[in-house]
Design a binder for these strands. Sequence first.
DNA 1: ACCTATCGATTAATTTTATTCATAGATAGT
DNA 2: ACTATCTATGAATAAAATTAATCGATAGGT
Lengths: 308, 308
Amino acid sequence: MLERTHLTVVQAVDEHGSLTAAAKELCVTQSALSHTMRKLEDNLGTPIWLREGRSLRLTQAGQYLLSIANRVLPQLHYAENKLHQMAKGELGTLRIGMECHPCYQWLLKVVSPFLEAWPNVDVDVKQKFQFGGVGALLSYEIDLLVTPDPFYKSGLSFEPVFDYEQVLIVPNDHTLATRKYINAADLRDQVLLTYPVEPDRLDIYTQFLNPAGVIPKRHKTSETTDIMLQMVASGRGVAALPRWLAEEYCRKFPLSVVRLGKSGIDKQIYLGTRETDNDVEYLKAFIELARSYKHQRANKESLTDKKN
Amino acid sequence: MLERTHLTVVQAVDEHGSLTAAAKELCVTQSALSHTMRKLEDNLGTPIWLREGRSLRLTQAGQYLLSIANRVLPQLHYAENKLHQMAKGELGTLRIGMECHPCYQWLLKVVSPFLEAWPNVDVDVKQKFQFGGVGALLSYEIDLLVTPDPFYKSGLSFEPVFDYEQVLIVPNDHTLATRKYINAADLRDQVLLTYPVEPDRLDIYTQFLNPAGVIPKRHKTSETTDIMLQMVASGRGVAALPRWLAEEYCRKFPLSVVRLGKSGIDKQIYLGTRETDNDVEYLKAFIELARSYKHQRANKESLTDKKN
DNA sequence: ACCTATCGATTAATTTTATTCATAGATAGT
DNA sequence: ACTATCTATGAATAAAATTAATCGATAGGT
């Protein structure tokens, strides 16, 4: 009943001084505005303007209506703008879900250039999902899943964006420190430090220890990578980490990296999305950024390899 | 482009769970809503809902739109309500203009019962007018003029609401205190206290002193009635006031009232309004209240007279 | 595994609404 | 007094919203 047009007309008349001028501004005839506002006045039961000769003077109701127009119209304009930006995929919230700890370390590297490139897009990172990461993706709890386990299913698409080797990290003076690689049996009398998750979600168990039927001497957990590696550095145990991350810590602490098994444990990080989101610009951009980060790192690593 | 309907529909769908339910609520067909929202989605370039089987799920844009709806719609509802109240004359601001000091004293008496009776109507009192009180009335600066000088002109109507006698107030021990009435010449050697306005707007000059060609010994001014009468009480001069006001002060201070001239100076207070405002309920109510106050006071006075 | 009820989308027809056109009435300025 | 410039108005027209009828999809019951 009180429509946006009415507010627009009141505002335009106030700004341009007359119905005629307002009509020109709004690209309609003066008659149209006259009819429109007359109808509103009839509905409200009060005039908006007093007609004095050939000019209009706002009544009290009209003044109030003008104040409403000046308050509400900007809100609508702003909303329209935002919606258009959202439509163009320039604005929104990228809700990222994660299913592994190494993913988190990797994610931190990619998120910051993304935030810079897309100042109007927020990033939300979630880690707990009632029905798993894929469930969260399918139920629109998240828009992007970072996971080591692609789960091919219609409606979803997964893409590997990062390859890494899972390695053992030990103190420099550890008996295993100089080994080219270790076997599962070598961990039988070691204390193993991991993140506090179930062993069947830890690659070192599923891909290394379990197949060989080996159980380490003890298993301790640590929430954070820093604490974990400080414990490793002080000889309290050994830990498994992505090589790129382990090497970073080798610079900070007296630690060494050892391959797990003769050919190593190779892992990938995948990004999962809904196919319905294929045209969301900032999502595509994030994946592109993730891809380029992978290559950049690959180049770096080959350089380091040569140095060694 | 982003219309009120769109907001209403988004809100209704959120509240009732489906387009169909929302349509029933809004008393239109489901088809109508489907068309309306489809058009909006086309305009924005982004869907508001994801169609999943037979249910709708808000997109990010949709969630934003819903938040806008929840913010903006109440504003419009509230505005509509207020406008309807204004239309019924139950709401507004009564802007009162005043042209004389006694008017102000009288006004105070009438305004408070009015404010009680019309809790939704505000009262604004103004005293300075570039083009006089009538000008202020005609230019919609005020809605009601309280004045001793009716100015009959087409478009305006004046109504007397209060009769009073302008009297001289003197200290109890003053030489004039016991006189039945005084002549202009009696003020020749008195100090006259008045409000600080031009003498041609003071009745004691225009209707009493000037006709007799008398000028008082001295003329002092005071902004407030209280101070003025304290000065009178301490023998610094004499003042002219409406009788009803003077008698009130006689109870507080040792003061006496003396008639000005043999038959006294009779004055009226008029209320002036624009004829276009004839159907403004609260304006009519104010005038009615003013009238009733006049009668009430008249009765009181006649009672006091009998006692004396 | 098959009905059935229900949901949203769609097309064409229809109704309602908004807008224009043409013109009258009023008025401020020259 | 004349003219230009307002707003209002009624009828005609254009545009938009709404409906009716129907389709395809799907969740839930049997």
